[in-house]
């Protein structure tokens, strides 16, 4: 009962299970599909270049360090510098955390603070700011030519600073860019777990300065600043210098979103 060929509909009609595609539709697809594939190619080529996934943070291999374990103002290891480097400070100060999103071994901090220790750590660094991820430390003998004990911090005065609060681990290291909205959850988990928090301040030339964060009395404020992590904040506080480590003393409510 099929119709005679002259009365066939003249509109082309595509049926997915038919063997033949009508020529008009076929020609259309022969332009459309390569066009779409070209668009995919352009996006795949172009999008990575406008993403900001290339921060200079890095990890190194795990290595042995020897230095003075410091619990205050933030947990860190003070490692004597080679040669006479008085101007920059006699020690390099490396922040400390555990390997996961957690504080450095509290037991070691309590028992060995102020003492020489051996510590196996994974350096995580960006610019000149370094954290060692480490499982713990063991007491070491006082080295024969040990320098004087690491100096106390000296106050540089009150400063008005604008920047972002970040964790001092993922931000410094492998996560790129490791800041702002996309990294906020991760930073919140790190900081609440006890990884030191830092204020990252950037000048218009793009140079960054880092300030480890503690309260006015030197107390930890990790849990109180969580609602302000990863957003632009403004803060007035006292800056302390410990050799190459800067510490900002400000109470949590002094950080303004």
């Amino acid at each position: 009962m099929t119709t005679d060929p002259n009365s066939k509909p003249k509109d082309e009609f595509y049926i997915g299970y038919a063997q033949k595609i009508p020529p008009g539709i076929r020609n259309f697809l022969l332009v459309l599909v390569p066009g779409l594939i070209a668009l995919v190619g352009i996006l795949g080529f172009w999008l990575p270049s406008v993403h900001n996934q290339y921060s200079p943070g890095a990890l190194d291999r795990t290595q042995d360090f020897q230095g003075v374990l410091m619990a205050q103002p933030v947990p860190h290891l003070a490692v004597p510098r080679q040669g006479n480097t008085r101007e920059g400070g006699a020690y390099s100060r490396y922040l400390l955390s555990a390997f996961n999103k957690a504080a450095f071994d509290p037991k070691a901090l309590k028992e060995l603070s102020g003492q020489w220790v051996n510590l196996k750590g994974l350096p995580v660094y960006r610019d000149h700011y370094t954290l060692l991820a480490s499982a713990g430390a063991t007491a070491a003998d006082l080295p024969a030519n040990a320098p004087m004990a690491p100096p106390e911090g000296k106050s540089l005065g009150e400063f008005d600073l604008s920047g972002q609060i970040e964790d001092s681990k993922c931000y410094l290291g492998v996560m790129k860019p490791g800041e702002s909205a996309t990294h906020r959850n991760c930073a919140i988990r790190c900081i609440s777990g006890g990884v030191p928090a830092s204020l990252v301040v950037q000048n218009t030339a793009g140079d960054r300065m880092y300030f480890a964060l503690v309260g006015r009395d030197g107390q930890a404020i990790n849990n109180q600043i969580l609602p302000k992590v990863g957003s632009p904040v403004n803060v007035k506080g006292e800056v302390m210098q410990y050799d190459d480590l800067y510490v900002l003393k400000a109470n949590p409510e002094e950080f303004k979103l």
């Binding site: 795949g44 080529f45 290339y54 790129k176």
Partner: peptide
């Protein structure tokens, strides 16, 4: 691939 090669040309180590 392009993320990798851009990272390489910027000298980024441990590309994430």
């Amino acid at each position: 691939h392009f993320a990798d090669s851009i990272g390489g040309s910027l000298g980024v180590s441990n590309l994430d």
